[in-house]
């Protein structure tokens, strides 16, 4: 990986999947020194392990959560406000204690993790699609198209992500009734995060594209009359994806925090299907009265999740940046 750019015929793996773009990158990653440097980096490998665990828990919460928190029949108000097991009055039955309704907080966190990660990944995916497309077009076509797209990006940058998310939330409030909005809350948040986060991708991809389009392989593709979309997505895209991967990882942490912030202020996920942010909001009602664990436990989970993502993002940035080698 001395050159993250165009490496058309150095690896046999790459040769065999020459035309399948992203697949080639994944294979390259596997056989690359990346995994080796991950093993060497204790912090990054710990972060990777923790993140993997959290993602698996989020993917199949039923396997990890002791209780089905959305099954109201399992909730007993009598169990409410139990402290975590290490405090007096707590029991291992509810390791992190229970909330104001008697829900097991550990289970609520695991299910909340799923909502948070879904929104985060969805938002990042949308931002990647928008940002990469705009970046490729702007960087490849150049000229007036580039100017217009980048000015739009500049304007977009002047709005903080939260503001855009609040705006989209407001629009959804105006057009959807309360019940429909609750059902659509996840989608609304994904759109909000996606629309507010694409600029960085667009800029990075545009820069990389402008470099790539002057390379010989692009010229030869142009000469063999490959369609422009083919050149963009099959030839240039694979070579700018490392940048996208690094930005995407950092962005995932940001996206999860935006979701948590919006849910905390009551603009995000409703308490019936709580995300980590919603759980913290509910717990916030009991901070003053001493039942701190209702807010702090989901808060810690959020902290661990975002920290793991950010550490991994830092590692990827360093490992994939040739200038640091």
């Amino acid at each position: 990986m001395s050159d993250p750019g165009h490496t058309p015929d150095t690896s046999p793996a790459a040769k065999s999947t020459a035309a399948t773009g992203p697949g080639r990158i994944l294979l390259a990653l596997r056989s690359s020194p990346l995994v080796r440097s991950l093993r060497k980096d204790m912090v990054a490998s710990a972060a990777f392990g923790v993140l993997l665990l959290l993602l698996v828990a989020a993917a199949v919460p039923d396997l990890f959560a002791p209780y089905q928190v959305f099954d109201l029949t399992q909730i007993r108000l009598m169990d409410a406000f139990r402290p975590p097991f290490w405090l007096e009055g707590g029991s291992i039955e509810f390791p992190f204690g229970t909330d104001d309704q008697g829900r097991d907080i550990l289970s609520a966190i695991i299910y909340g993790l799923r909502v948070s990660v879904t929104v985060g990944l969805g938002g990042v995916a949308l931002a990647v699609v928008i940002g990469v497309t705009i970046g490729l077009v702007a960087g490849y076509v150049g000229g007036i198209v580039d100017s217009i797209l980048m000015r739009i990006a500049d304007v977009q940058l002047t709005f903080p992500a939260i503001l855009i998310a609040v705006m989209i939330d407001g629009v959804s409030r105006a057009i959807l009734d309360n019940a429909a909005r609750e059902d659509a809350a996840v989608v609304v948040l994904i759109i909000a995060i996606g629309l507010s986060g694409w600029v960085e991708y667009a800029r990075a991809v545009r820069g990389a594209t402008m470099v790539e389009r002057r390379r010989d392989y692009v010229a030869s593709a142009q000469l063999s009359r490959v369609r422009t979309s083919g050149i963009l997505f099959n030839h240039i895209l694979p070579n700018v994806l490392t940048a996208v991967l690094v930005i995407g990882t950092i962005h995932l942490g940001v996206a999860i925090l935006i979701e948590a912030t919006l849910s905390f202020v009551g603009l995000g996920i409703p308490p019936t299907q709580p995300s980590l942010g919603t759980l913290i909001r509910v717990g916030n009602n009991y901070i003053l009265s001493g039942e701190w664990w209702i807010a702090i436990m989901p808060g810690l989970a959020l902290l661990v999740l975002v920290l793991a993502i950010n550490l991994l993002g830092d590692f990827l940035r360093d490992a994939l940046n040739p200038r640091l080698k």
Partner: peptide, 28 residues
Amino acid sequence: PEQICQAVSAMMSQIGIDIDLNLIPRAQ
């Protein structure tokens, strides 16, 4: 009220009544 309604939703689920809880500001 929010906590009461959630608690009663759980109590209703015990007898098979499935509550779709609609939490809204008083103005609505």
